[in-house]
Amino acid sequence: MNWQGVFPAVTTKFHQNGNLDMEMFFKNIDAQLEAGVNGIILGGTLGESSVLSQEEKIKLTTETVDYINGKVPVVLNIAEGATQDAIFWAEKAKEMGASGLMLLPPMRYSADHREVVTYFKAVANSTDLPIMIYNNPVDYKTLVTIQMFEELTACENIQAIKESTRDISNVTRMKNRFGDRYKILCGVDTLAMEELVMGADGWVAGLVCAFPKETVAVFNLVKEGKYEEALEIYRWFLPLLELDIHPKLVQYIKLAEQLTGIGTEWVRAPRLTLVGEERIKIENIIKRGLENRPVV
Protein backbone atom coordinates (compact mmCIF):
# COMPACT_ATOMS: atom_id res chain seq x y z
CA MET A 1 0.00 0.00 0.00
CA ASN A 2 1.39 3.36 -1.03
CA TRP A 3 -0.03 5.94 1.37
CA GLN A 4 1.01 8.89 -0.77
CA GLY A 5 -0.87 11.34 -2.94
CA VAL A 6 -4.49 12.47 -3.02
CA PHE A 7 -7.13 10.19 -1.47
CA PRO A 8 -10.68 11.53 -1.96
CA ALA A 9 -13.10 10.80 0.88
CA VAL A 10 -15.93 10.37 -1.59
CA THR A 11 -19.58 11.15 -0.97
CA THR A 12 -22.29 8.52 -1.32
CA LYS A 13 -24.70 9.50 -4.06
CA PHE A 14 -28.46 9.23 -3.54
CA HIS A 15 -31.53 9.71 -5.68
CA GLN A 16 -34.05 12.21 -4.35
CA ASN A 17 -36.05 9.30 -2.88
CA GLY A 18 -33.04 8.27 -0.78
CA ASN A 19 -31.97 5.21 -2.75
CA LEU A 20 -28.32 4.75 -3.76
CA ASP A 21 -27.46 6.39 -7.08
CA MET A 22 -24.61 4.22 -8.33
CA GLU A 23 -24.65 5.75 -11.81
CA MET A 24 -23.84 9.21 -10.47
CA PHE A 25 -21.44 7.72 -7.93
CA PHE A 26 -19.38 6.14 -10.69
CA LYS A 27 -19.53 9.32 -12.79
CA ASN A 28 -17.77 11.02 -9.91
CA ILE A 29 -15.29 8.16 -9.54
CA ASP A 30 -14.45 8.54 -13.24
CA ALA A 31 -13.69 12.24 -12.66
CA GLN A 32 -11.42 11.36 -9.73
CA LEU A 33 -9.50 8.75 -11.69
CA GLU A 34 -9.17 11.04 -14.71
CA ALA A 35 -7.67 13.73 -12.46
CA GLY A 36 -5.04 11.30 -11.21
CA VAL A 37 -6.02 10.60 -7.60
CA ASN A 38 -4.06 7.91 -5.77
CA GLY A 39 -6.83 6.12 -3.89
CA ILE A 40 -10.52 6.21 -2.97
CA ILE A 41 -11.86 6.25 0.60
CA LEU A 42 -15.37 4.94 1.23
CA GLY A 43 -17.58 5.27 4.27
CA GLY A 44 -16.21 8.38 5.93
CA THR A 45 -18.16 11.35 7.22
CA LEU A 46 -18.62 12.61 3.66
CA GLY A 47 -19.80 9.13 2.70
CA GLU A 48 -22.64 9.40 5.24
CA SER A 49 -21.66 6.01 6.58
CA SER A 50 -23.66 6.45 9.78
CA VAL A 51 -26.95 6.40 7.85
CA LEU A 52 -26.11 3.54 5.50
CA SER A 53 -27.39 0.04 6.19
CA GLN A 54 -24.95 -2.85 6.39
CA GLU A 55 -26.25 -4.08 3.03
CA GLU A 56 -25.67 -0.68 1.43
CA LYS A 57 -22.10 -0.49 2.75
CA ILE A 58 -21.41 -3.92 1.30
CA LYS A 59 -22.96 -2.99 -2.06
CA LEU A 60 -21.05 0.29 -2.20
CA THR A 61 -17.73 -1.37 -1.38
CA THR A 62 -18.01 -4.44 -3.59
CA GLU A 63 -19.23 -2.48 -6.61
CA THR A 64 -16.54 0.16 -6.18
CA VAL A 65 -13.80 -2.45 -5.94
CA ASP A 66 -15.15 -4.12 -9.08
CA TYR A 67 -15.53 -0.84 -10.96
CA ILE A 68 -12.07 0.52 -10.14
CA ASN A 69 -10.57 -2.89 -10.89
CA GLY A 70 -7.18 -2.24 -9.32
CA LYS A 71 -6.50 1.18 -10.89
CA VAL A 72 -6.08 2.70 -7.40
CA PRO A 73 -6.53 1.30 -3.88
CA VAL A 74 -10.00 1.32 -2.32
CA VAL A 75 -9.88 2.11 1.40
CA LEU A 76 -12.84 1.42 3.71
CA ASN A 77 -13.39 3.64 6.74
CA ILE A 78 -14.26 1.97 10.05
CA ALA A 79 -16.03 4.06 12.69
CA GLU A 80 -17.64 1.78 15.25
CA GLY A 81 -18.53 1.83 18.93
CA ALA A 82 -17.84 -1.85 19.60
CA THR A 83 -14.50 -3.55 19.01
CA GLN A 84 -16.26 -6.64 17.68
CA ASP A 85 -18.06 -4.53 15.07
CA ALA A 86 -14.81 -2.91 13.96
CA ILE A 87 -13.23 -6.34 13.61
CA PHE A 88 -16.25 -7.51 11.61
CA TRP A 89 -15.77 -4.68 9.10
CA ALA A 90 -12.02 -5.25 8.91
CA GLU A 91 -12.66 -8.88 8.00
CA LYS A 92 -15.48 -7.94 5.62
CA ALA A 93 -13.29 -5.32 3.90
CA LYS A 94 -10.69 -7.97 3.14
CA GLU A 95 -13.39 -10.31 1.84
CA MET A 96 -14.80 -7.58 -0.43
CA GLY A 97 -11.40 -6.79 -1.94
CA ALA A 98 -10.58 -3.48 -0.25
CA SER A 99 -6.89 -2.56 -0.25
CA GLY A 100 -6.76 -0.87 3.14
CA LEU A 101 -8.63 0.57 6.11
CA MET A 102 -9.05 3.99 7.66
CA LEU A 103 -9.72 3.49 11.37
CA LEU A 104 -11.19 5.89 13.90
CA PRO A 105 -10.95 5.49 17.69
CA PRO A 106 -14.03 3.99 19.40
CA MET A 107 -17.15 6.01 18.69
CA ARG A 108 -19.54 7.43 21.31
CA TYR A 109 -17.56 6.11 24.32
CA SER A 110 -14.67 8.35 25.37
CA ALA A 111 -11.94 5.73 25.72
CA ASP A 112 -8.76 6.34 27.71
CA HIS A 113 -5.17 5.76 26.57
CA ARG A 114 -5.09 2.04 27.34
CA GLU A 115 -8.51 1.43 25.78
CA VAL A 116 -7.70 3.31 22.57
CA VAL A 117 -4.43 1.43 22.07
CA THR A 118 -6.07 -1.91 22.86
CA TYR A 119 -8.87 -1.17 20.41
CA PHE A 120 -6.51 -0.25 17.58
CA LYS A 121 -4.31 -3.29 18.25
CA ALA A 122 -7.30 -5.64 18.33
CA VAL A 123 -8.47 -4.45 14.91
CA ALA A 124 -4.95 -4.41 13.43
CA ASN A 125 -4.23 -7.92 14.70
CA SER A 126 -7.46 -9.23 13.16
CA THR A 127 -6.38 -8.41 9.59
CA ASP A 128 -3.38 -8.10 7.32
CA LEU A 129 -4.86 -5.08 5.53
CA PRO A 130 -2.80 -1.88 5.85
CA ILE A 131 -4.35 0.67 8.19
CA MET A 132 -4.43 4.48 8.40
CA ILE A 133 -5.38 5.82 11.84
CA TYR A 134 -7.73 8.81 11.65
CA ASN A 135 -6.66 11.31 14.31
CA ASN A 136 -9.38 13.95 14.62
CA PRO A 137 -9.86 15.11 18.22
CA VAL A 138 -11.75 18.24 17.14
CA ASP A 139 -14.72 16.34 15.69
CA TYR A 140 -14.47 12.96 17.45
CA LYS A 141 -13.14 14.09 20.86
CA THR A 142 -10.33 11.50 21.15
CA LEU A 143 -6.73 12.57 20.62
CA VAL A 144 -4.42 9.80 19.47
CA THR A 145 -1.23 10.93 21.19
CA ILE A 146 2.39 10.41 20.19
CA GLN A 147 2.68 7.99 23.11
CA MET A 148 -0.19 5.94 21.67
CA PHE A 149 1.45 5.91 18.24
CA GLU A 150 4.66 4.76 19.93
CA GLU A 151 2.84 1.69 21.25
CA LEU A 152 1.14 1.10 17.90
CA THR A 153 4.47 0.71 16.11
CA ALA A 154 4.24 -2.92 17.26
CA CYS A 155 1.52 -3.41 14.61
CA GLU A 156 3.30 -3.42 11.28
CA ASN A 157 0.09 -2.97 9.29
CA ILE A 158 -0.68 0.35 11.03
CA GLN A 159 1.18 2.37 8.43
CA ALA A 160 -0.35 5.83 8.09
CA ILE A 161 -2.09 8.66 9.91
CA LYS A 162 -4.83 10.96 8.70
CA GLU A 163 -3.65 14.09 10.50
CA SER A 164 -6.68 16.19 11.45
CA THR A 165 -5.59 17.67 14.78
CA ARG A 166 -5.51 21.18 13.18
CA ASP A 167 -1.94 21.54 14.50
CA ILE A 168 0.37 21.94 11.50
CA SER A 169 3.44 21.42 13.68
CA ASN A 170 2.19 17.91 14.40
CA VAL A 171 3.51 16.88 10.97
CA THR A 172 7.02 17.88 12.02
CA ARG A 173 6.52 16.43 15.50
CA MET A 174 5.56 13.03 14.07
CA LYS A 175 8.35 13.05 11.48
CA ASN A 176 10.90 13.92 14.17
CA ARG A 177 9.67 11.10 16.39
CA PHE A 178 8.98 8.35 13.87
CA GLY A 179 10.78 9.26 10.65
CA ASP A 180 9.13 7.35 7.81
CA ARG A 181 7.56 4.72 10.08
CA TYR A 182 4.17 6.37 9.52
CA LYS A 183 3.01 8.14 6.39
CA ILE A 184 1.24 11.40 7.24
CA LEU A 185 -1.79 12.49 5.20
CA CYS A 186 -3.39 15.87 5.81
CA GLY A 187 -7.07 15.47 6.66
CA VAL A 188 -8.10 19.14 6.77
CA ASP A 189 -8.57 20.83 3.39
CA THR A 190 -7.76 24.32 4.66
CA LEU A 191 -4.34 23.20 5.95
CA ALA A 192 -3.38 20.99 3.03
CA MET A 193 -0.74 23.07 1.28
CA GLU A 194 0.81 24.09 4.60
CA GLU A 195 1.10 20.48 5.78
CA LEU A 196 2.38 19.26 2.40
CA VAL A 197 5.13 21.89 2.51
CA MET A 198 6.02 20.64 5.99
CA GLY A 199 6.46 17.12 4.66
CA ALA A 200 3.05 15.44 4.72
CA ASP A 201 2.97 12.50 2.33
CA GLY A 202 -0.62 12.81 1.17
CA TRP A 203 -3.97 14.54 1.36
CA VAL A 204 -7.26 12.94 2.37
CA ALA A 205 -9.40 15.52 0.61
CA GLY A 206 -13.01 16.68 0.71
CA LEU A 207 -13.49 19.36 -1.95
CA VAL A 208 -11.72 17.03 -4.35
CA CYS A 209 -15.19 15.47 -4.70
CA ALA A 210 -16.21 18.53 -6.73
CA PHE A 211 -12.80 19.82 -7.86
CA PRO A 212 -10.55 16.81 -8.47
CA LYS A 213 -8.16 18.37 -11.01
CA GLU A 214 -7.42 21.40 -8.86
CA THR A 215 -6.78 19.25 -5.78
CA VAL A 216 -4.37 16.96 -7.60
CA ALA A 217 -2.65 19.98 -9.18
CA VAL A 218 -1.95 21.58 -5.79
CA PHE A 219 -0.53 18.32 -4.45
CA ASN A 220 1.67 17.67 -7.48
CA LEU A 221 2.97 21.23 -7.70
CA VAL A 222 3.96 21.28 -4.02
CA LYS A 223 5.74 17.95 -4.32
CA GLU A 224 7.57 19.27 -7.40
CA GLY A 225 8.69 22.32 -5.41
CA LYS A 226 6.66 24.67 -7.59
CA TYR A 227 5.30 26.59 -4.62
CA GLU A 228 4.31 29.80 -6.41
CA GLU A 229 2.22 27.91 -8.96
CA ALA A 230 0.64 25.82 -6.21
CA LEU A 231 -0.07 28.91 -4.14
CA GLU A 232 -1.89 30.62 -6.99
CA ILE A 233 -4.35 27.72 -7.21
CA TYR A 234 -4.54 27.30 -3.43
CA ARG A 235 -5.48 30.95 -2.84
CA TRP A 236 -8.27 30.64 -5.40
CA PHE A 237 -9.31 27.35 -3.76
CA LEU A 238 -9.40 28.43 -0.10
CA PRO A 239 -12.97 29.84 0.05
CA LEU A 240 -14.14 26.51 -1.36
CA LEU A 241 -11.90 24.46 0.91
CA GLU A 242 -13.46 26.19 3.91
CA LEU A 243 -16.70 24.37 3.10
CA ASP A 244 -14.93 21.24 4.41
CA ILE A 245 -14.62 22.51 8.00
CA HIS A 246 -18.29 23.15 8.75
CA PRO A 247 -20.75 20.76 10.46
CA LYS A 248 -22.73 20.77 7.19
CA LEU A 249 -19.72 19.84 5.07
CA VAL A 250 -21.71 16.97 3.51
CA GLN A 251 -24.47 19.27 2.25
CA TYR A 252 -21.99 21.95 1.17
CA ILE A 253 -19.72 19.60 -0.76
CA LYS A 254 -22.62 17.75 -2.35
CA LEU A 255 -24.02 21.06 -3.58
CA ALA A 256 -20.60 21.82 -5.05
CA GLU A 257 -20.62 18.41 -6.78
CA GLN A 258 -24.01 19.20 -8.27
CA LEU A 259 -22.90 22.60 -9.54
CA THR A 260 -19.78 21.10 -11.13
CA GLY A 261 -21.85 18.36 -12.78
CA ILE A 262 -20.33 15.33 -11.06
CA GLY A 263 -22.81 14.75 -8.25
CA THR A 264 -26.17 15.56 -6.73
CA GLU A 265 -27.13 17.45 -3.60
CA TRP A 266 -29.37 14.73 -2.16
CA VAL A 267 -28.51 13.70 1.39
CA ARG A 268 -30.09 11.21 3.76
CA ALA A 269 -32.06 12.26 6.85
CA PRO A 270 -31.51 13.57 9.42
CA ARG A 271 -29.44 15.76 7.08
CA LEU A 272 -31.54 17.98 4.85
CA THR A 273 -30.64 19.76 1.63
CA LEU A 274 -29.90 23.46 1.95
CA VAL A 275 -32.62 26.09 1.73
CA GLY A 276 -33.08 29.83 2.09
CA GLU A 277 -30.29 32.26 2.89
CA GLU A 278 -27.83 29.50 3.77
CA ARG A 279 -28.27 27.91 0.36
CA ILE A 280 -27.85 31.24 -1.43
CA LYS A 281 -24.67 31.96 0.56
CA ILE A 282 -23.06 28.60 -0.23
CA GLU A 283 -24.16 28.69 -3.88
CA ASN A 284 -22.56 32.12 -4.24
CA ILE A 285 -19.24 30.86 -2.83
CA ILE A 286 -19.25 27.95 -5.26
CA LYS A 287 -20.34 30.04 -8.24
CA ARG A 288 -17.62 32.63 -7.57
CA GLY A 289 -15.13 29.80 -7.53
CA LEU A 290 -16.44 28.47 -10.82
CA GLU A 291 -16.35 31.91 -12.44
CA ASN A 292 -12.68 32.30 -11.57
CA ARG A 293 -11.70 28.63 -11.92
CA PRO A 294 -8.08 28.31 -12.97
CA VAL A 295 -6.95 26.25 -15.93
CA VAL A 296 -4.88 23.32 -14.66
Rank of each mutant, 00 (worst) to 15 (best):
E48A: 04
K162N: 07
K141P: 00
G276W: 09
I78V: 15
V250F: 04
T172E: 08
N69V: 05
Y140I: 09
F149N: 04
T215Q: 03
G43R: 00
K57M: 13
K71V: 13
N170F: 14
H15F: 14
E80W: 10
L143I: 02
L103P: 02
R114V: 13
Q258Y: 00
E214N: 05
D85M: 14
Y119P: 03
N220Q: 04
K183Q: 11
E229W: 03
A210L: 02
I262N: 05
V250W: 04
L196I: 07
L207W: 05
N19G: 13
V116D: 12
L191E: 14
W266T: 00
E95D: 15
T273E: 11
L152C: 12
L104T: 00
D66A: 15
G276N: 05
E224T: 00
E63G: 15
Q4R: 14
L52D: 01
A154R: 01
L191D: 14
A124N: 01
D112K: 07
E195Y: 08
I158A: 11
L221M: 01
I78E: 07
L152E: 13
F25V: 02
Q159Y: 04
V275H: 11
P137H: 08
V275C: 07
V295M: 06
A269I: 00
R271Y: 04
L249T: 05
Y67N: 14
F7A: 13
T273R: 11
